[in-house]
């Protein structure tokens, strides 16, 4: 059996007095496609933000490729990770955001090229070719010199995906990437995600409200409810056979 590439061990997270996550245990395997569904405010986004080091867990461990993300060894004891440690562990993780977060002062080609060149120290020529290829792949080969403000929401989100892919992550996180889009633009973004899921061998974690899509591409579906993973399994298990009352109720709202 292969080792998980990410392992959450009894991870808790609270913001002030509010306990958002109350003990998450989760394994993500290489190339696995995981969908996280659940009502708003159930902590879905927080799970992946902690993995991207944007949010620190209140307790528990997140292990990435065998290394503890938020803790490091110092003089024989485990202490809170510093920035250097976080950078060394999160290098294989990429993320796409609900609000795109493209860099508005750079062209979309520069958006893709900056990190590989300056973070990974890769050759500029090679990065440029790869970035153009990636932008062509997401259907924006003719816009490489445009600025983000000149693009539609769907196009921006496709650039954001290209930007993450150029870094060649082993794990890609998608945080409600279609929630901020006009309905008619959702399809083009989902198409790119499907393309990545089918042709790239990275692990993917999708936090989404696009229920049918998630259930369609996911190997594993997690139903998060009130800060715990209330149900997990293959898409068919979760949809067809779950006895969880709240999950059935949640799904029925999407099924009409």
């Amino acid at each position: 059996m292969t080792e998980p590439i990410v392992r959450y061990q009894d991870v808790h997270k609270s913001f002030g007095d509010i306990n958002v996550l109350k003990g998450i245990d989760l394994d993500i395997f290489p190339a696995e496609k995981v969908a996280i569904i659940g009502p708003s405010g159930s902590g879905k986004t927080t799970i992946i933000r902690m993995l991207m080091t944007l949010e620190e867990p209140s307790s528990g461990d997140i292990i990435v490729d065998g290394t503890n993300l938020w803790k490091m060894k110092k003089n024989g004891t485990m202490v809170e990770a510093n920035e250097k440690h976080l950078r060394s562990v999160r290098g294989d993780i990429g993320m796409v955001f609900q609000h795109f977060n493209l860099f508005p002062h750079m062209t979309i080609l520069e958006n893709c090229m900056t990190a590989p060149i300056h973070v990974k120290g890769e050759d500029k020529q090679e990065v440029e070719e790869r970035s153009i290829q990636m932008l062509e792949r997401v259907g924006l080969g003719d816009k490489i010199h445009n600025y983000p403000s000149q693009l539609s929401g769907g196009q921006k989100q496709r650039v954001a995906m290209a930007r993450a892919l150029v870094m060649r992550p082993k794990i890609m996180l998608f945080d409600e990437v279609t929630s901020a889009l006009d309905p008619e633009l959702v399809g083009e973004v989902l198409e790119v995600i499907r393309d990545i899921a089918e042709n790239d061998d990275m692990a993917m974690v999708l936090v989404t409200h696009e229920m049918d899509f998630a259930l369609d591409i996911a190997d594993k579906v997690l139903f998060l409810d009130e800060g715990v993973i209330a149900e997990q399994g293959s898409a068919t298990d979760v949809i067809e056979h779950s006895q969880n009352e709240r999950l059935r109720e949640f799904l029925s709202r999407f099924r009409g």
Binding site: M52, T53, L54, E83, R87, R90, G91, I93, G94, M95, F97, H99, N101, L102, F103, T114, A115, H118, V119, K120, A160, R163, A164, M167, L173
Partner: peptide
């Protein structure tokens, strides 16, 4: 969100 996107690209705080 700008800083978060940069973090997701593994930039250091200086970068």
């Amino acid at each position: 969100g700008q800083s978060e996107a940069a973090t997701a690209l593994n930039m250091s705080s200086f970068q």
